[in-house]
Design a protein around this nucleic acid. Structure first.
Length: 155
DNA sequence: GCCAACGTTGGC
DNA sequence: GCCAACGTTGGC
Protein backbone atom coordinates (compact mmCIF):
# COMPACT_ATOMS: atom_id res chain seq x y z
CA UNK A 1 0.00 0.00 0.00
CA UNK A 2 1.39 3.42 -0.90
CA UNK A 3 2.04 5.91 1.84
CA UNK A 4 2.00 9.68 1.61
CA UNK A 5 2.88 12.86 3.43
CA UNK A 6 0.58 15.86 3.59
CA UNK A 7 1.76 19.30 4.68
CA UNK A 8 -0.43 21.73 6.55
CA UNK A 9 0.23 24.88 8.48
CA UNK A 10 -0.86 24.24 12.07
CA UNK A 11 -1.87 27.86 12.49
CA UNK A 12 -4.41 27.26 9.72
CA UNK A 13 -5.29 23.58 10.16
CA UNK A 14 -3.21 21.32 12.36
CA UNK A 15 -3.48 17.69 13.40
CA UNK A 16 -5.59 18.55 16.47
CA UNK A 17 -8.06 20.21 14.09
CA UNK A 18 -8.26 17.01 12.07
CA UNK A 19 -8.95 15.02 15.24
CA UNK A 20 -11.65 17.50 16.18
CA UNK A 21 -13.48 17.45 12.83
CA UNK A 22 -12.93 13.77 12.12
CA UNK A 23 -12.86 14.01 8.34
CA UNK A 24 -11.63 16.86 6.23
CA UNK A 25 -11.61 17.59 2.50
CA UNK A 26 -8.02 18.11 1.38
CA UNK A 27 -8.75 20.93 -1.02
CA UNK A 28 -6.85 23.94 -2.24
CA UNK A 29 -3.87 22.08 -3.68
CA UNK A 30 -2.78 24.19 -6.65
CA UNK A 31 0.46 22.60 -7.70
CA UNK A 32 0.55 20.09 -10.54
CA UNK A 33 3.04 17.71 -9.00
CA UNK A 34 1.11 17.62 -5.73
CA UNK A 35 -2.15 17.19 -7.64
CA UNK A 36 -0.76 14.24 -9.55
CA UNK A 37 0.08 12.53 -6.28
CA UNK A 38 -3.42 13.24 -4.95
CA UNK A 39 -4.79 11.47 -8.01
CA UNK A 40 -2.74 8.38 -7.21
CA UNK A 41 -4.21 8.04 -3.74
CA UNK A 42 -6.67 5.29 -2.87
CA UNK A 43 -9.12 4.97 -0.02
CA UNK A 44 -7.32 3.46 2.95
CA UNK A 45 -3.86 4.82 2.14
CA UNK A 46 -2.03 6.08 5.21
CA UNK A 47 -0.44 9.53 5.37
CA UNK A 48 1.95 11.33 7.64
CA UNK A 49 0.41 14.64 8.66
CA UNK A 50 3.18 17.24 8.62
CA UNK A 51 3.18 20.66 10.23
CA UNK A 52 4.93 23.24 8.06
CA UNK A 53 5.66 26.88 8.82
CA UNK A 54 5.62 25.95 12.45
CA UNK A 55 7.98 26.77 15.28
CA UNK A 56 8.81 23.08 15.31
CA UNK A 57 8.09 21.70 11.84
CA UNK A 58 7.51 17.96 11.77
CA UNK A 59 5.07 15.08 11.64
CA UNK A 60 2.20 15.41 14.12
CA UNK A 61 0.24 12.27 13.39
CA UNK A 62 -1.10 9.69 10.97
CA UNK A 63 -4.09 10.22 8.71
CA UNK A 64 -5.95 7.95 6.32
CA UNK A 65 -7.45 8.62 2.92
CA UNK A 66 -11.21 8.16 3.20
CA UNK A 67 -12.06 9.21 -0.34
CA UNK A 68 -10.01 9.03 -3.52
CA UNK A 69 -9.44 12.03 -5.78
CA UNK A 70 -12.46 13.95 -7.01
CA UNK A 71 -13.13 17.46 -8.24
CA UNK A 72 -12.12 20.31 -5.94
CA UNK A 73 -15.10 22.61 -6.37
CA UNK A 74 -13.31 25.61 -4.92
CA UNK A 75 -11.60 26.07 -8.29
CA UNK A 76 -14.97 27.21 -9.69
CA UNK A 77 -15.92 29.48 -6.79
CA UNK A 78 -14.99 33.11 -7.58
CA UNK A 79 -15.27 33.94 -3.89
CA UNK A 80 -12.68 31.35 -2.93
CA UNK A 81 -9.00 32.02 -2.52
CA UNK A 82 -8.54 28.81 -4.50
CA UNK A 83 -10.58 30.01 -7.49
CA UNK A 84 -8.95 29.20 -10.82
CA UNK A 85 -10.55 31.10 -13.70
CA UNK A 86 -8.58 29.02 -16.18
CA UNK A 87 -10.02 25.70 -15.06
CA UNK A 88 -12.48 24.22 -17.55
CA UNK A 89 -15.57 22.74 -15.80
CA UNK A 90 -15.77 20.01 -18.45
CA UNK A 91 -12.23 19.03 -17.51
CA UNK A 92 -11.49 20.27 -13.99
CA UNK A 93 -7.86 21.08 -13.39
CA UNK A 94 -7.71 20.47 -9.63
CA UNK A 95 -8.57 17.50 -7.46
CA UNK A 96 -8.97 16.85 -3.77
CA UNK A 97 -9.17 13.84 -1.49
CA UNK A 98 -10.69 13.39 1.94
CA UNK A 99 -8.72 12.40 5.04
CA UNK A 100 -9.43 11.34 8.60
CA UNK A 101 -7.32 11.27 11.74
CA UNK A 102 -5.88 7.90 12.72
CA UNK A 103 -3.39 8.51 15.51
CA UNK A 104 -1.57 11.46 16.96
CA UNK A 105 2.16 11.15 17.51
CA UNK A 106 3.04 11.32 21.25
CA UNK A 107 5.16 14.34 20.30
CA UNK A 108 5.84 16.02 17.00
CA UNK A 109 8.57 14.13 15.15
CA UNK A 110 10.64 17.12 14.17
CA UNK A 111 12.12 17.72 10.76
CA UNK A 112 15.49 17.69 12.49
CA UNK A 113 14.80 14.18 13.80
CA UNK A 114 13.53 13.05 10.40
CA UNK A 115 16.71 14.32 8.73
CA UNK A 116 18.66 12.05 11.08
CA UNK A 117 16.87 8.95 9.76
CA UNK A 118 18.84 7.29 6.93
CA UNK A 119 15.60 6.19 5.24
CA UNK A 120 14.74 9.85 4.71
CA UNK A 121 18.01 10.88 3.11
CA UNK A 122 16.40 11.00 -0.33
CA UNK A 123 12.99 12.61 -0.08
CA UNK A 124 11.37 15.81 -1.32
CA UNK A 125 10.70 16.54 2.35
CA UNK A 126 14.34 16.74 3.32
CA UNK A 127 15.63 18.12 0.03
CA UNK A 128 16.74 21.72 0.33
CA UNK A 129 14.40 24.13 -1.33
CA UNK A 130 11.65 21.59 -1.98
CA UNK A 131 8.17 22.99 -1.41
CA UNK A 132 6.13 19.99 -2.48
CA UNK A 133 3.09 19.78 -0.18
CA UNK A 134 1.92 16.29 -1.13
CA UNK A 135 4.55 13.61 -1.56
CA UNK A 136 4.98 9.85 -1.59
CA UNK A 137 6.59 8.08 1.35
CA UNK A 138 8.22 4.64 1.09
CA UNK A 139 7.17 1.87 3.50
CA UNK A 140 10.67 2.14 5.00
CA UNK A 141 10.27 5.87 5.56
CA UNK A 142 6.84 5.39 7.05
CA UNK A 143 8.04 2.64 9.38
CA UNK A 144 11.11 4.60 10.44
CA UNK A 145 8.99 7.66 11.24
CA UNK A 146 6.60 5.65 13.39
CA UNK A 147 9.44 3.89 15.16
CA UNK A 148 11.20 7.18 15.82
CA UNK A 149 7.95 8.52 17.25
CA UNK A 150 7.71 5.50 19.53
CA UNK A 151 4.68 3.99 17.84
CA UNK A 152 4.05 0.46 16.65
CA UNK A 153 3.16 -0.08 13.01
CA UNK A 154 -0.37 0.77 11.97
CA UNK A 155 -2.42 -1.29 9.57
C1' DG B 1 10.60 28.62 -26.55
C1' DC B 2 13.25 31.66 -23.61
C1' DC B 3 13.64 33.88 -19.44
C1' DA B 4 12.68 37.93 -16.33
C1' DA B 5 9.39 39.08 -13.11
C1' DC B 6 6.33 37.76 -9.87
C1' DG B 7 3.93 35.37 -6.06
C1' DT B 8 4.36 31.64 -2.82
C1' DT B 9 6.43 28.28 0.27
C1' DG B 10 8.58 27.09 4.39
C1' DG B 11 12.87 26.68 7.32
C1' DC B 12 15.14 29.51 10.12
C1' DG C 1 9.63 38.51 9.80
C1' DC C 2 13.33 37.36 6.54
C1' DC C 3 14.69 35.56 2.40
C1' DA C 4 16.34 31.57 -0.60
C1' DA C 5 14.32 28.57 -3.58
C1' DC C 6 10.77 27.31 -6.36
C1' DG C 7 6.73 27.15 -9.87
C1' DT C 8 4.07 29.92 -12.91
C1' DT C 9 3.12 33.61 -16.01
C1' DG C 10 3.49 36.35 -19.92
C1' DG C 11 6.12 39.51 -23.06
C1' DC C 12 9.00 39.00 -26.66
Amino acid sequence: MPHWLLKSEPDVFGYPDLERVGREPWNGVRNYQARNFLRQMAEGDLCLFYHSRSKTPGVAGVARITRAAHTDDLQFDPASAYFDPKSDPSQPRWSMVEVEAVRAFPAVLTLEAIRALPEWADSPLTRKGSRLSVLPVTPEQFGAALAAAGLALIN
